[in-house]
């Protein structure tokens, strides 16, 4: 590799400074704060604090509400990842079949990605709010007792739908690229070997997409875990009860609403560990992912 040598010793640092400052102020410093606070107990007014060791962590793991949040998070993430991948793959395959208008559909499919999570949440709320939702009324006409404000499963379905809808675009783009990378002659060979479209999809296309699917699975899991705060906040605020309170949402609830700083900090440290683990997993497996050819 070529080493770049800058004649000026100061300029590179000046150019790097804004980025470094942002990283330090908005990432390392809060992270350090979280570590510090996770081993302290503080009164809600922030007037006094004392060192308690791992007491906060012990409490967190003993808290049934935390275990509930963990379960909610797992269910939520699995559902979002499954539906976002499945629907995106289905749409990508359908668009690939088109002769005309491929580009148009592709462009249209990307738009949801540009919508901010909170706005996406509001959108789904407006459609499905039991009292004024546009689609809540037809649902009730169909005999469904639709009330996500009272029914935890329906609330979960609603946030899953909103979170899935937003992520489909991203997955769609990757699947389209993945599909285009599969040589057409392979499908032709399969057609000559006697495979119908469905069989060729499951025996040729799907296995060859495995690297893309695996990459997206990790990305979607991370998304469902950490980037869906805005959606949950806008649609259900973790309710009803705690049926849509994910780990991230609980950090916010305990820290900023209930002002239990020590516990909230301990929870964020746990989340940080999860992110680091997922990232390491992604690097280890995706960088070395299967290459065909």
């Amino acid at each position: 590799m070529r080493r770049t040598v800058f004649p000026n010793k100061v300029l590179p640092w000046v150019l790097l400074a804004p980025q470094l400052a942002i990283t330090l102020i908005f990432f390392y410093w809060p992270a350090a704060q979280a570590f510090r606070q996770s081993v302290l107990r503080e009164d809600p007014f922030g007037l006094s604090s004392k060192y308690v060791g791992l007491e906060n962590f012990r409490k967190v793991f003993a808290d049934p509400a935390y275990l509930n949040a963990m379960q909610v998070t797992v269910v939520f993430s699995l559902l979002v990842a499954f539906f976002a991948l499945g629907i995106a793959l289905f749409l990508a395959v359908q668009v690939e079949k088109l002769v005309r208008g491929k580009g148009f559909y592709r462009t249209m499919m990307i738009w949801p990605y540009a919508v901010a999570p909170a706005i996406a949440g509001m959108l789904w709320l407006f459609m499905f709010n039991p009292s004024f939702g546009t689609l809540a009324y037809p649902l009730r006409l169909m005999g469904i007792d639709w009330n996500p404000l009272l029914n935890g499963d329906q609330a979960m379905a609603l946030v899953v739908a909103a979170a899935t809808w937003k992520q489909i675009s991203y997955n769609f783009l990757f699947f389209v690229a993945g599909l285009q990378a599969i040589p057409r002659s392979l499908l032709e060979a399969a057609a000559i070997d006697g495979a119908n479209r469905r069989h060729a999809f499951w025996t040729i296309v799907f296995p060859l997409l495995a690297p893309t699917t695996f990459f997206l699975l990790v990305v979607n899991t991370v998304y469902a875990l950490f980037d869906t705060f805005g959606i949950i906040h806008a649609v259900t605020s973790g309710g009803p009860g705690k049926s849509t309170e994910t780990l991230v949402y609980k950090v916010y609830n305990d820290g900023f609403v209930n002002l239990i700083m020590g516990s909230s900090a301990a929870q964020s440290v746990i989340l940080m560990v999860i992110v680091i683990a997922l990232t390491a997993f992604q690097f280890r497996f995706i960088e070395k992912r299967v290459h065909y050819g």
Binding site: P183, E188, A189, A191, I192, N196, G293
Partner: peptide
């Protein structure tokens, strides 16, 4: 008729072997 209904076999220029 679809290729599979024609009872033919074909060898492609780039071989088109299933890589997996």
């Amino acid at each position: 008729l679809e290729p599979r209904q024609r009872d033919i076999a074909m060898v492609f220029q780039n071989y088109a072997l299933y890589p997996h």
